[in-house]
């Protein structure tokens, strides 16, 4: 599966993932606490500058940011119509700044680094017996491993519909897809246990 991570050697790439995540959390807090349009405008410009410094180019950047910027624009227009222009501007600037900063962290942090951070963050949860930290990485790997298989199966079920002259419907697609996919669970679980990957308690 493609990821949104972009190979590179910018300052943000070299920064430790933990520092980036903490900085992102801290800046979102600040952005929500401060209402001054001047501060928010500066933050949005700053976010734009940071994102631009990744050197993705206009086309790539637009492609990646379009869905979220569109949502923000719609909400801003709504606010303009229903509330006030001042509020609309605040929403627009605040959310744009946040989106740019978050997208910059995503583009400069590899999947593996993220998984390491998640595993570390789950340690306290492990101590209270909620999850096993190592399970998270394993499960994420499992999902990525089996998405293509599910898609292949989906295609096969769709083809079976066409072959029999049936129109694909949510119900007739979803039910066989789910049953056929989950049926593999026993064997996959047995394989994990047989290889001693999740050492028994």
């Amino acid at each position: 599966m493609k990821t949104l991570y972009v190979e590179g050697d910018t300052f943000l790439h070299r920064l430790s993932p933990r520092v980036k995540l903490v900085a992102l959390a801290f800046s979102s807090l600040l952005l929500f606490l401060i209402d001054s349009p001047l501060f928010l405008a500066a933050a949005a410009v700053c976010g734009g500058w940071i994102y631009a410094s990744l050197g993705l180019g206009w086309r790539q950047s637009l492609l990646r940011l379009r869905p979220i910027l569109l949502t923000i624009a719609i909400v801003a227009v709504f606010t303009l119509v229903l509330n006030s222009p001042g509020q609309a501007l605040t929403v627009l600037l605040r959310l744009t700044a946040l989106a740019l900063l978050a997208a910059a962290v995503t583009a400069t942090t590899s999947t593996g680094d993220f998984i390491d951070e998640i595993t570390l963050a789950a340690r306290p949860l492990e101590r209270i017996g909620l999850v096993r930290a190592a399970d998270l990485g394993l499960s994420i790997g499992l999902v990525v491993r089996f998405v293509p298989e599910v898609l292949t199966r989906y295609q096969a079920i769709r083809d079976a519909h066409h072959a029999r002259g049936l129109k694909p419907r949510p119900l007739t697609l979803a039910v066989p897809l789910i049953i056929l996919t989950l049926r593999n669970a026993d064997e996959i679980a047995a394989a994990i246990d047989a290889r001693g990957i999740r050492a028994q308690k």
């Binding site: 991570y5 869905p67 959310l95 942090t109």
Partner: peptide
């Protein structure tokens, strides 16, 4: 963790700060 797994290829941390 930055996989575009939501419909329309959306993903990444920005999704969590979207409206």
């Amino acid at each position: 963790i930055g996989l575009p797994v939501l419909s329309g290829g959306r993903g990444g941390l920005a999704t969590f700060v979207s409206p």
